[in-house]
Simulated assay, not measured.
Amino acid sequence: MPEPAPMIVATPDDAEDIAHLRNRLAQWMVDNGIGQWVPGEYPSTLVAEEAARGEWFVWREADMLAAAVRIVWRDPDFWGADDDTEAGYIHGLMVAPEQRGRDLGTRIIQFCADYTLANGVTLQRLDTAADNAVLRKYYTAQGFTELRETRLPPQFHGTTHVVLMEKMLA
């Protein structure tokens, strides 16, 4: 099992850093022909609202944002308004480019699983761009099963379809 991630609950004060990291990663995706995120589509004001609800977690090292992730308990935007399945829905899992190669993604996924279980929920869900073969393979290797493909919610623009994935937790 990977070493636990030193994640802490984000506050609205973290919103600018989280949005900035997302924009950096989105620009990298655009520059590398990956249709997943678009710079500027996830404003810091929205991140601040989500952080105020306790949905964002951050990993800081030397006062720099190394990684972030959002966990919610319902996800009608991606899974459908009629899906009332309780799960820990992972969104916006981000690792700063300069932190790559340290297996932080795996550690954050384990943090998400531990947090979900600690809240009495035994199912983890996420989505990824349907045409992002690298992330689909990565999440499959992390124990997630692909369930189906669906249209990307209209507020996002990086791609047209996402794959919905889930994993039962111990």
Rank of each mutant, 00 (worst) to 15 (best):
W28R: 11
A48C: 15
K167H: 07
N119Q: 10
A130S: 13
K167Y: 08
L164D: 01
T122F: 09
P97H: 06
D31S: 10
R102T: 13
P97Q: 11
N119K: 07
P39N: 11
G54T: 02
M1H: 07
V9E: 10
E166D: 15
H157C: 06
A52V: 06
H20C: 10
G40H: 03
D14N: 05
T150V: 15
G40E: 02
I90L: 15
A5M: 13
Q124A: 15
D103I: 01
M1N: 05
V69E: 04
Q110M: 06
I8R: 15
V9P: 09
A96H: 14
W79L: 12
G158S: 13
S44Y: 04
M7Q: 01
A170Q: 12
I8C: 08
L93N: 05
Y115E: 13
F144R: 07
K167W: 07
I18C: 03
H157G: 12
A15G: 03
D14H: 07
L21G: 02
V72G: 06
M94G: 01
Y115H: 14
I109P: 01
N23L: 01
I18W: 00
A52Q: 14
A67G: 04
R151Y: 13
P2D: 03
P12F: 10
L93M: 14
T159P: 05
R148N: 09
T140P: 05
R70H: 09
V30L: 12
A51S: 15
G54M: 03
F144Y: 15
R151W: 12
A62W: 03
Q142M: 15
D114S: 10
A87M: 09
E166W: 01
R148Q: 12
R74F: 03
W79Q: 07
D13C: 07
Q27G: 08
W56E: 00
H161Y: 12
I34D: 05
A5T: 02
E50T: 10
L126R: 00
M29N: 00
P4G: 06
F78W: 10
Y89C: 00
V38F: 02
G88S: 07
M165D: 04
D127C: 12
R148K: 12
A19L: 06
M29W: 02
V58G: 01
P97R: 12
P154Q: 09
T150P: 00
A62P: 01
W79A: 04
I8Q: 14
V69W: 04
Q142H: 10
A51K: 01
I18V: 08
F156D: 07
R22G: 04
R60Y: 14
D13F: 07
V121C: 14
A81R: 11
A96V: 08
R60G: 00
R148H: 11
H91M: 09
D82M: 11
M94F: 09
R60T: 03
A113F: 02
E98V: 08
E41K: 05
T159Y: 08
A51Q: 03
W56C: 01
H161A: 11
V38H: 02
D77N: 10
V162P: 00
Y139R: 02
